[in-house]
Structures are given as structure tokens and as C-alpha cells.
Design a protein around this nucleic acid. Sequence first.
DNA 1: AGTCCACAGGAAGGGCAGGCGA
DNA 2: TCGCCTGCCCTTCCTGTGGACT
Length: 410
Amino acid sequence: MQKGIFVCAENKEEMRQALLVEVLGGYLRRRSIFRDKEVLLQRFKPAKLVHRDEELSFLASSLAPSLRGEKPGNIFLYGNTGTGKTAACEFVGRELGAASAKSRQRAMVININCKLGKVADTEYRLIAALTSRLGKDLPVTGLPTDVVYNTFFSLLEKKGKTVILVLDEIDALLFKAGDGFLYSLTRINERLEKSQVSIVGISNNLTVFDYFDPRIKSSLAAEEFVFSPYDAVQLQDILRDRARVAFRDGVLDDGVIELCSAIAAQEHGDARKALNILKLAGEVAESMGEERIGEEHVALAKERLETDHLTTAINTQPRQGKAVISALMALRERGTKKATTGDLYAAYGESCQRFSLAPLTQRRVSDIIGELQMQGIINARIVNNGRYGRTRLLELSPDIEALGRSALVP
DNA sequence: AGTCCACAGGAAGGGCAGGCGA
DNA sequence: TCGCCTGCCCTTCCTGTGGACT
């Protein structure tokens, strides 16, 4: 009997392996739906930017003086995610680089993302990252800030160029480190003789300028430009342009491009999202063994994209953040739809036991709540209950709640 | 009008890890 | 090795808030 069970288990294992071989073999035998998936990825740099003529023309005319050795004015670009701000800057930067290589006056563009991978999310890291782009790597910590600034200044001076600093997602740095670094950067030209520096700030937040110190506003004297969202028709043009290269001929059903565009247009005209959905729809169709992409695959892709996004958002939290989310989930399961900070802190204590974590103070948990609110994971509203005190009413965002506790990996 | 509650949130500083230069 | 510098995460202390209650 025992032997029988063992043989059964062994057969199951063999069957599972055979299935795996079949799946992989089938994958290799089938012709891929994709011709060149690369063009649908975020990192792909297109040779032309569709429907961004006005924006490109503004940027090019603003930065063109650098080709004559003159200092261009500072610029601030605003617009929702996926409206082409970064792509437009990179595009103009490449063209500028190519044009300056032919002319005597050489311009140089340095792109830094202030949010990505904590490369430049503090003043120190920003200047260290800029210094690294000029050819000298500095330690991630340990040096006095003035030493880092001085190294940066001397490298700039050595270049003898007009340097355009493109600070992408500058709001992340401003909210974290304050606007002091901008003051230093705007005064930089007073210290340089052979080089000059212009700043291009890129932000999703249209009100970011309001937070600046008046001295910095005056010192920057930046020209502002808003990137408008793409409409559904413009998104269709972008997708068609990429799909021609990305997919084999005839694999896209009628209406697929239109559906992807309509979904992204509803979400503030985000071209990045439209491309993501189209790519994922292709992957979904391929994983189902289909040789064509239909609207049903787009619907599945949209669903998967949202779930993946939310699951990633909560599972990339530090463990303390997860403990707070878990506490709120536990309260919801007990029927508390809207918890106060006090309720949450009590449940958080239990959560910490489950996560084997030392509990933080209420003050720190209060900050974590604020961080989770900023990321849209928690909805919070301050209420005054008279003599029963002032507190925040907290609930999980509906999307996170729909995912349930199983989405949270401790 | 004064008191009270249950926090919110600012300010200051401690502890830690890590790099640099003497 | 030591002192000094950094960023980061955290605690402690403190003041502010505003509506219900006395």
C-alpha cells in the first residue's frame, strides 16, 4: 500500500515534468506573435515623437542658444505620467548633442532621474550623481557636502561647456530634501568662468513651483511649459506606429489598438500605459497559445496590469509598512471599516508579533500612515470628535481591499 | 469660558553604517 | 585607528487642533 502511494507520487512527478517539457517545447515550436517586442518597452527610444511637435519645438528653441555658447534659460516642464516629458527631453538632448558635435561650441546634456533607485533623492546623492556623469565617481556617503559641491564645480569648469542639467521627477527630491540644492545650482554660474549651467526640471506635480522659496523662484526665473495629455486618437497613432514594428503582420484584431488607447485615455492620456497594455495583451495571447490578439486579451491584460501594480506596491513596502497594512486588513476582517489611528496602532502591535517585528512608536507609525496615504494604499481623513479628540479615519483603498490578505507576502 | 481628549505633526537629537583623511 | 562627515531610521518631547462637554 505504502509502495503504491509512492509509485503514484512518482508518476505524478513524471507527469508534471512531461507537461513542463511539452509547454516549453510548444513555446519554442510556435511562431511568436511579436516581431520586435523591444519597441513596446519603456526604455525604447523612438526615432520620432508622435504628436509632440509643439513641445519639441519649445524645448529645441529654448535650448538652442547653447549651440552658440550662450546660456539657455532655465525651464520647468509639467505634465501627467506618460505625456512624453522625459522622452521629449531625451530626444532634444540627443539632437542637441549631435548638432553640438558639428559646431565649435559644445553643449552637454546630463539627464538624472531624482526618484529612480534612490540615485539622486537627496542633495548629496544628486550632486554625487551629477559628478559621476562628469567622469568622477564619489562614495555614496561619507564626504562633506561642500567637498562634493567643489568636486562638481571643478569638473564643470574643466569641461568648458554649456551644460544642461535635466532633473527628472524633481518633485521627489524637492519634497524630500527641500529646495536648498536648487538655490546652490542656480548660483553656480557665478562661480564658473569657462562653463555655464542651465536647469531643466521635470515634474508630474503642477503645483511644485508654489512650494519654492521666493528667492529661489527669482533666482531660477524658469520658463514653464505644460505637456498636455494625449487624447485617444493621438494614442492610437502612437500605438499603430509601434505595433507595425512590434508585431507580425495581421496578428492584431480590429479594435485592439482602439481599445488600448481608450483605456489609457481614460487614465490621463498615459502613452506608457497604452504601450504596456498592448504588450501585455500580446503576452497573454501568446501564453494562451493564440496566434492573434483580440479585445478579450486586452481586457485580461488590463486586469493583470492593475493587479500586478497593486501587488507590487504593497509587497515592495518595508516590513513595518507591511505590518501597518496587515493591521488595517485585520481590522477590516473584524468589521471595522474605518479605523482611528489608535485602533490601528493597537492592531499593529498584534501584526508585529505575527511578523516577528519590534513595534515602532505611534509617532513613527503615524508617519508610515502618511507615506502609505501618499502612495494611495491607504485613504485617510482627519476628523475632530470634540472632547473625544482629533484623529485620522483610516481605510484601505478599495483596490487594495479587493486584493485581500493573500496579496500581502510577509 | 474653560477644560478635555486623542491624536497630528514639527523639532531636535540618538544610534547606526559607511567613507575619507590624517 | 580615530575623528569627522554623511544619510537614514527612529525616539522623545513638545505644541497645536477644534469640537464636545462642563
